[in-house]
Amino acid sequence: MTRYLMTRLFYFFLALLVLSVVTFALNWLFPGDPLTNMSGIREGQTAYEAALTSRSFDSTIIQQYLNYLEHIVRLDWGLSLSTGTGVWQDAATYLVVSAELLLLSFLVAVVVGMPLGMLAANYFRHNIDKFILTSAMTGYSIPVFWLAQLLILLFAVQIEWLPITGQINPLYAIDSVTGSVIIDILLSDSQYKLAALQDATLHLILPVLTLSSLPSMLLLRITRNQTIEVLQKPYVKAARARGLSQQRLLFRHALPNVLQDVLPQMTFIFGLMMANLVIVEHIFNWPGAGAWLLKAIIERDYPIIQMVLFTLMALILVLNLLVEVYRGWRFPMTREERYGGY
């Protein structure tokens, strides 16, 4: 296990390093002058020459990269070009807002996708399976931005069950402390906590539904295929020959073996969700990192773009690491397959 852990950690840091090189290179890849991109100081301004030396533009590129790395480690991402405040200070709330949306959607995707996938596999080629698979294909083929608008039209405009956009009705006057509405409400001393919580939940439904639709359908299909495969494995047959019930077969013998191969796919699905996050947050006017990134791109606020890109990608890497470590611990066979030992 130690060797496995060390290898995984090594690859994790290697990937982070590559990622930092890419974000560092962005400074030069963005159109325009690199110094202007980073600091907002234009050529010809009096501070330009001083900034050139203070940002060590006169030293080698390696030295500059090392400086950059040092700043990353200190979480110093510079100042936003549009607001002039520290990027990292702003980022905290934006990231928590997005994390709330992402985690809830991911949870919904797992809770909806995996059981339905197993159900479909259990009724392989029966009508239940066909129905689930057809619905999954339909859900899978609808583009997220269009689905969001359809849902708004139906639930918010036509039958008026749910609010159109936003996190919560501003009349509840909940101060944004952490960024996550639900935690904020629980922390606040408002006398309408329960009503506020209900309102926030109603606001959450549409974005979560939109964001979780694609991942849950993907997860459904992966789980279904994997379960069908596992159910045909000899050890499941042997368990069946022991007179075990179908439920016990599915949950005790098939599920762990299905998870073994579905888990790595979850990272991939999480990455997909990050991409859709930007769209969903923009449509539902959600004050998260995705919408912030989009705004930064439009305003050419390069430090923010760099930070959000790096953080989102690093998040995927962290998740990947966690999944790999859990998988290696719970399913020792995977370690064996990969490294031929511990």
Binding site: K233, P234, Y235, K237, A238, A239, A241, R242, G243, H253, P256, N257, Q260, R330, F331, M333
Partner: peptide, 17 residues
């Protein structure tokens, strides 16, 4: 309760996890 079966390829018939 009353029956049991063993198979040709024991490694494949044991749950790997």
């Amino acid at each position: 309760r009353d029956m049991a079966m063993i198979f040709q390829d024991p490694l494949a018939y044991l749950d790997p996890n």
